[in-house]
């Protein structure tokens, strides 16, 4: 039973940071993010930037799948749309990143809406298959529309520039990408305190019931696809400015599956779920490499088992979470903070 959740005002009920540990925890996290580039080497900063990009992408998937119940296997390809739209628009128009990023987001939202149209007629497994088809179609178009996307050869773009300074080093790119990611997560948190967010949740819980109580399914399902795709477009845009070179193969089905797995482990329908999911998929391989690297002096051939161990660890963790903590890492995190908040009266 949930205890210690007493609210005396509507404002308290709607607050983003509902308790002091959450408030201070968020402040500590922001401080940590600010200090990280000064304390860590460029590889750690690179990984943190990747976590931020994945967080934005998975947040988009969370809106679509976690909150609205529309499972998508095309999310990785939509990130590709955002990335390619960024590179193409930047190369064609030569406009700065702060103009390109919203344009790429709009393009991706439009593409996402188009592929979301089947959701008006089908759902569940059939919709999943439709989004799977979208994934293949998008990657095929990127690969074969060579005159625009440069096809298999990939595409490059100039780095984002702020006051004439090109953002090429890892700390510079981190400084651009991480604040945008934090704002994107906060926007998502706010979204579910609004009419739109609650409509999404109503559709997920029962679309028939939602329609009966006045939620327009056409509008809100398409809106969910549009918003989820916009997040994918934003992630793609940040991806483009982080890597500065893109290949179609980066956005194949595997990326969508990674996003979905991250959402399951991180915790769907929770704001922090995508953050934990992104940390999980980016850091687990590195942690395993570190462990095996530590063991190498004792057994030089153990490095051969790093990769299988990686796959096994992914699989096992997903199974463990599905069985023991279907709400994901975010739920464990919430319980820890609740315990701290109620201490010394914690259950």
């Amino acid at each position: 039973m949930l205890i210690g959740d007493y609210k005396a005002t509507y404002a308290a009920d709607e607050a983003i940071f509902r308790s002091w540990p959450v408030r201070y925890g968020f402040a500590a996290m922001v401080a940590g993010l600010v200090l990280l580039p000064f304390a860590a080497n460029s590889f750690i900063v690179f990984l943190a930037t990747q976590v931020a990009i994945y967080t934005v992408a998975i947040t988009g998937l969370n809106i679509l799948t976690g909150y609205t119940g529309l499972i998508s296997l095309g999310h990785g390809a939509l990130v590709g749309v955002g990335a390619y739209a960024t590179a193409i628009l930047a190369n064609w128009l030569g406009v700065p990143f702060w103009v390109v990023i919203p344009m790429a987001v709009a393009v991706t939202a439009g593409v996402g809406l188009m592929f979301g149209l089947p959701s008006l007629r089908i759902r569940g497994l059939y919709l999943t298959i439709a989004t799977l088809a979208a994934s293949f179609i998008i990657v095929f178009v990127i690969e074969h529309w060579g005159s625009v996307t440069n096809g298999d050869s990939g595409i490059t773009l100039a780095p984002a520039s702020v006051f004439g300074i090109d953002l090429v080093s890892d700390p510079q790119k981190y400084a651009l990408i991480v604040p945008i990611a934090v704002l994107a997560v906060l926007f998502a948190q706010n979204l579910f305190r609004t009419r739109i967010g609650r409509a999404f949740i109503a559709i997920r819980d029962s679309d028939y019931s939602a329609e009966i109580i006045g939620v327009g399914l056409t509008r809100y399902k398409l809106l969910a696809f549009g918003l989820g795709s916009a997040y994918a477009g934003l992630a793609g845009s940040l991806w483009a400015y982080n890597f500065l070179a893109l290949l179609p193969t980066q956005f194949e089905l595997q990326l969508s599956i990674i996003f979905l797995a991250a959402l399951v482990v991180g915790g769907s329908a929770r704001t922090l779920g995508p953050v934990f999911g992104a940390v999980f998929v980016i850091l687990i391989p590195e942690m395993l490499k570190w462990v095996f690297g530590f063991l190498t002096p004792f057994n030089p051939t153990i490095v051969e088992y790093t990769a299988p161990a990686n796959t096994i660890a992914y699989g096992l963790l997903i199974i463990v979470f599905m069985i023991f903590e279907p709400m994901g890492l975010a739920a464990i995190w919430t319980r820890i903070w609740r315990y701290i908040n109620l201490w010394p009266f914690s259950p």
Binding site: T156, A245, L247, Q250
Partner: peptide, 9 residues
């Protein structure tokens, strides 16, 4: 793929 991605780096 790597050789192309690493070129800007």
């Amino acid at each position: 793929g790597f050789m192309k991605l690493v070129a800007p780096e």
